[in-house]
C-alpha cells in the first residue's frame, strides 16, 4: 500500500495532465462500482462524462476552482487506505494495418490497478477463430499495458469482453469494446 501511495504522490503532476487529457478525450460510461472500495472503469463506448473527485477523506483530492483551474489538495492525516479511492481503466483494441491485432489497457486513474482481466474474441469471414482470456497485474498509471496480441488471418471483428478491473479485493466491469475492419 505504501508503495502505491508513493507512486500516487510522485505522479501527482502527471495526474493533472492526465486528467486534462481524460476530460477532453474520453467520453465514457462509468459503471461497475463496489460498496466500499469502488473501482471505476471506463470504456470507449460510453456516454457519460468524466466524474470529478470531491471526497473530503481522500488523500489527494483533485478539483476545479472557480476559474476552471485544476487544483490538487493533499491530506497527510488520513490513512493510506482510501475508501472510495477511484481508478479509471480505459481499454482499446489496435489494428496495425495487417492481420496482427493487439488489446491495450490504460490506467487513467490515480492509483495502481491490481489486476485487469478480459476475454478477446476474433472473427474473420469464416467464423470465430480465436477466443482467449488474458490477465495482467499491477497496472500503473499513464502507461498503456499490452494485454493481448495476436494474429488472425483476414480478421473482420475483434470483441473485447468481460473486462474487469480489480483493486482492493473488489472489481468493476466495463462494456465490451469492439473493433471492426
Amino acid at each position: 500500500m505504501r508503495k502505491r501511495l508513493l507512486a500516487a504522490l510522485l505522479t501527482t503532476m502527471m495526474v493533472v495532465s492526465m486528467l486534462a487529457t481524460t476530460a477532453l478525450a474520453v467520453e465514457m460510461e462509468i459503471t461497475g462500482t463496489s460498496k466500499d472500495f469502488p473501482v471505476t472503469v471506463c470504456s470507449e463506448n460510453s456516454s457519460k462524462s468524466y466524474q470529478e473527485i470531491t471526497d473530503d477523506d481522500a488523500l489527494v483530492v483533485i478539483s476545479k476552482d472557480a476559474d476552471g483551474e485544476i487544483q490538487v489538495h493533499q491530506n497527510n492525516d488520513v490513512d493510506p487506505r482510501i475508501p472510495g479511492w477511484p481508478n479509471w481503466l480505459y481499454v482499446y483494441a489496435h489494428n496495425d494495418g495487417n492481420d496482427n491485432w493487439s488489446v491495450w489497457a490504460k490506467n487513467i486513474g490515480l492509483d495502481w490497478i491490481d489486476k485487469v482481466t478480459l476475454n478477446v474474441r476474433v472473427y474473420n469471414e469464416r467464423g470465430l477463430q480465436h477466443s482467449l482470456n488474458y490477465s495482467e497485474e499491477g497496472i500503473i498509471q499513464a502507461f498503456p499495458r499490452r494485454m493481448a496480441e495476436g494474429y488472425t488471418r483476414g480478421w473482420t471483428r475483434i470483441e473485447v469482453r468481460n473486462i474487469r478491473g480489480f483493486d482492493e479485493g473488489d472489481y468493476g466491469t466495463i462494456p465490451d469494446v469492439n473493433l471492426y475492419r
Partner: peptide, 9 residues
C-alpha cells in the same frame, strides 16, 4: 469446421 464454424468453437 475451420472454414464454416471457426477454430475457437
Amino acid at each position: 469446421i475451420a472454414f464454416t464454424k471457426g477454430l475457437a468453437t
